[in-house]
Amino acid sequence: MKMKISTQNLSISSVCKQCGRELSQEFFYVNRQTQCLDIYCKGCRKKIGRCPYNSGSWIRKEQRNKYSYLVITQVEDPLVRMELILHVLKVVRQSVEHKRIKILEDEADRTDYV
Results as ranks from 00 to 15, higher is better:
residue 65 N to W: 00
residue 23 L to I: 00
residue 43 G to C: 01
residue 4 K to L: 05
residue 58 W to E: 08
residue 65 N to S: 11
residue 111 T to D: 15
residue 71 V to W: 00
residue 9 N to E: 10
residue 113 Y to V: 15
residue 55 S to G: 05
residue 81 R to Y: 06
residue 71 V to E: 01
residue 74 Q to M: 10
residue 2 K to T: 11
residue 78 P to Y: 03
residue 5 I to V: 09
residue 5 I to R: 10
residue 102 K to A: 13
residue 110 R to M: 12
residue 74 Q to S: 10
residue 35 Q to Y: 07
residue 45 R to L: 08
residue 107 E to H: 12
residue 67 Y to L: 11
residue 55 S to L: 09
residue 35 Q to V: 04
residue 96 V to K: 14
residue 100 R to E: 05
residue 17 K to W: 00
residue 104 L to G: 06
residue 89 L to A: 12
residue 58 W to K: 06
residue 9 N to Q: 12
residue 109 D to C: 07
residue 75 V to W: 01
residue 2 K to N: 08
residue 14 S to N: 07
residue 62 E to I: 03
residue 87 H to K: 15
residue 107 E to F: 11
residue 21 R to Q: 12
residue 46 K to H: 09
residue 13 S to V: 13
residue 65 N to E: 10
residue 9 N to I: 14
residue 7 T to M: 15
residue 25 Q to I: 11
residue 28 F to D: 02
residue 27 F to Q: 07
residue 91 V to C: 08
residue 102 K to H: 03
residue 81 R to F: 01
residue 105 E to Q: 15
residue 65 N to L: 04
residue 113 Y to C: 10
residue 43 G to I: 07
residue 81 R to P: 07
residue 104 L to W: 08
residue 50 R to P: 00
residue 10 L to E: 06
residue 12 I to M: 04
residue 54 N to Q: 03
residue 45 R to S: 06
residue 48 I to W: 03
residue 32 R to G: 07
residue 56 G to C: 06
residue 111 T to R: 15
residue 113 Y to Q: 12
residue 26 E to H: 12
residue 112 D to L: 06
residue 3 M to L: 14
residue 28 F to V: 02
residue 86 L to C: 11
residue 69 Y to E: 04
residue 1 M to G: 15
residue 103 I to C: 06
residue 35 Q to M: 14
residue 107 E to L: 13
residue 97 E to P: 02
residue 75 V to N: 01
residue 36 C to V: 11
residue 15 V to W: 03
residue 57 S to C: 10
residue 13 S to N: 14
residue 99 K to A: 15
residue 17 K to D: 03
residue 87 H to T: 14
residue 56 G to W: 02
residue 15 V to Y: 02
residue 102 K to R: 13
residue 67 Y to C: 05
residue 76 E to Y: 03
residue 59 I to V: 10
residue 66 K to G: 01
residue 21 R to G: 03
residue 16 C to P: 00
residue 24 S to H: 03
residue 86 L to P: 00
residue 106 D to M: 15
residue 25 Q to F: 04
residue 76 E to D: 14
residue 46 K to D: 06
residue 36 C to D: 04
residue 36 C to M: 12
residue 102 K to P: 00
residue 74 Q to A: 10
residue 12 I to W: 04
residue 11 S to H: 11
residue 23 L to Y: 03
residue 23 L to C: 04
residue 89 L to S: 10
residue 4 K to P: 03
residue 47 K to V: 07
residue 66 K to P: 06
residue 65 N to T: 08
residue 14 S to H: 06
residue 99 K to Q: 13
residue 63 Q to T: 06
residue 109 D to I: 13
residue 6 S to M: 08
residue 91 V to F: 02
residue 41 C to N: 09
residue 110 R to T: 13
residue 27 F to W: 05
residue 20 G to K: 08
residue 56 G to V: 02
residue 16 C to I: 04
